[in-house]
Amino acid sequence: MEYTTTQSHGDYAAIKKEIWKVTIILSVLTIIELSLGLLMYLNPDMNHSMKWALKGAIIILMLAKGFYIVAYFMHLKHEIRNMIMTIVLPLTLFVWFIIAFLYDGNSYNELKNNYDRQYYEQSKIKATKAESSHEITQPKTEQATPTE
């Protein structure tokens, strides 16, 4: 059966130029991601909504990187539309997948906090870091109430 390569457009030099362009874009996106991560590290007292905004920005940058890798390095952008759709449409299941499971995890935590006081109290007890040893799997936690 006849098929043609998808590289029929553009010459070698132009393609190489595109590859390096995408490399630079990926590097820049990574550096921005890392600097946002560092910003969160250097400001531990950052308020909650700011932290979520930064995390959201990091996720958007992650998706942008994913797009550049798939579209240019894996060359999906230059394939035939029908073929792209057979791959991309099933992946839209992830929209449901992510929302449903994260929502469920969060709801489980809320239920535990509201209806299982022991779980809630246990999760608020400060602990001390165990010595590095594989024999101790459960580092000692400070007792909430004196044992005596």
Binding site: L93, F94, F97, I98, L102, G105, Y108, N109, K112, K124
Partner: peptide
């Protein structure tokens, strides 16, 4: 990608279900 997605999403669900 669904295999990796399932792994990462279950990680996310575990993280969201912890205080």
């Amino acid at each position: 990608s669904f295999t990796f997605g399932a792994f990462l999403i279950s990680y996310g669900a575990a993280r969201f279900s912890a205080n």
